[in-house]
């Protein structure tokens, strides 16, 4: 069965955005043997980084989860570009690194990053089951609330 993950994305009502170009002198992904390293992905709204916000302050956990989901969708866009358009070549999501911009006393980073973890398992099934870490940081690029990087393997 071909395009199984594309079909799953369609079922979920997800239209992959164009893979976002790197914002400076680095690349959005590197393919090293069977590994695909994807640069930290942030959310974009209408082509601009956003929404802007900080957990524990100007953004709720639910809204943070939605942003983490957007980051995961951007990760999938980068994956598709790295695999010449063929998502079926994904073998496994190996690791997610979840960075949450938040107040010093905020402790719900895992719940926020679940927005990304849940989506990856929804789309890729067992191939989407990953290891991960989640950390609270003082600030992220452009003031976005979540940034997520990823490592995948390919077939």
């Amino acid at each position: 069965m071909t395009n199984k993950y594309e079909r799953r994305l369609t079922e979920l009502g997800i239209e992959l955005p164009e893979a976002v170009a790197a914002q400076a002198n680095y690349v959005p992904y590197v393919v090293a043997d069977d590994f695909i390293y994807i640069s930290g992905q942030i959310p974009f709204v209408d082509g601009k980084p956003g929404p802007i916000g900080r957990l524990g302050d100007t953004m709720s956990v639910e809204d943070g989860q939605a942003v983490a989901r957007l980051c995961a969708i951007n990760i999938i866009s980068q994956l598709k570009a790295a695999l010449d358009g063929n998502l079926d070549r994904i073998k496994q999501c190996v690791k997610l690194g979840g960075f949450v911009s938040c107040t010093p006393d905020f402790g719900d980073q895992p719940q926020v990053i679940n927005g990304a973890s849940d989506l990856l398992v929804d789309v890729f099934g067992d191939a989407g089951r990953h290891s991960r870490f989640a950390v609270g940081v003082a600030a992220l690029p452009f003031g976005v609330p979540v940034e997520i990087d990823a490592i995948f393997t390919k077939l």
Binding site: Q92, V121, S131, F133, V135
Partner: peptide, 20 residues
């Protein structure tokens, strides 16, 4: 073992990636 949608470790080739 977390109840969330991730696992404690993933073995990818000869590399074992362990969750935080």
């Amino acid at each position: 073992k977390s109840s969330a949608n991730y696992v404690g470790a993933v073995l990818a080739g000869s590399f074992l990636h362990i969750s935080g």
